[in-house]
Design a protein around this nucleic acid. Sequence first.
DNA 1: GATGAAACCTAACCTTT
DNA 2: AAAGGTTAGGTTTCATC
Lengths: 142, 142
Amino acid sequence: MDPVDAGIIERLRANARAGYGDIGEQVGLSASAVKRRVDRMVADGVIRGFTVRVDPRIEGSVIEAHVELFCRGTVSPRALQRILEGVPEVVEAGTVTGEADAIVFMRARDVGALEEALERVRTAASVDHTRSAIVLSKLITR
Amino acid sequence: MDPVDAGIIERLRANARAGYGDIGEQVGLSASAVKRRVDRMVADGVIRGFTVRVDPRIEGSVIEAHVELFCRGTVSPRALQRILEGVPEVVEAGTVTGEADAIVFMRARDVGALEEALERVRTAASVDHTRSAIVLSKLITR
DNA sequence: GATGAAACCTAACCTTT
DNA sequence: AAAGGTTAGGTTTCATC
């Protein structure tokens, strides 16, 4: 990961379907040199994959919630991670400053799926209780 | 947006650099038919763009915070949106159930940038106060 | 959906440091 | 060795029919 790699990623972030030649022009490399670097970054796991950004209004009616997690006693971040990894509805999660032990951002197909996912988080051995805020209207998605 | 479009998006979500021919094989269309549909979805804004998913540990030391927003009186979602749109550090935002009027998820390059962004949100006319939880260790990113 | 020209991807080979 | 450039082929894209 040198400045050239960073430049390539910046270009791919803007348009992941850009040709290697186009990217090369912008970072001052030939097409094959760019491809080699991209291949290496994919192999190394620096680049996890290439995706499409879809209009969130089209994505189907999704329901989202911010969930504060309160645990019993002391729980290691690793243990929390193990619990949350098993719940695909968890989009973002991290331990945080403040009262809660962690905050989890969840996204599900409908209320039922969200409730079920929440239940799976809540029943984990070390989780004492949760406090949820359901997203009513989406203001920003970036 | 019919089931075939949904299939194409699903394939692009898995790999946005996949060839039209490959996608066509999976959804039962020729390469040119797939290209036409993708072009149309891009033109219609259904597809916003193509990006790369990067290992978050590589992305440079980012700092994140969950911020609860409390407003003075009644504020329309639209007004909130106008405030938040101007702050690029805001990654996700929505009005929510519960005490807070909105919850905002922010991401900045460092503590200084986060503080400055928070300040910009806080000083908006209708915002009364905020309550932040800084993310300490990232557990899940999807 | 098919066609063909242009553009692109990709691997092998060569040059440079 | 390690990293980039060049070349050449096969493939893909893309406008047109």
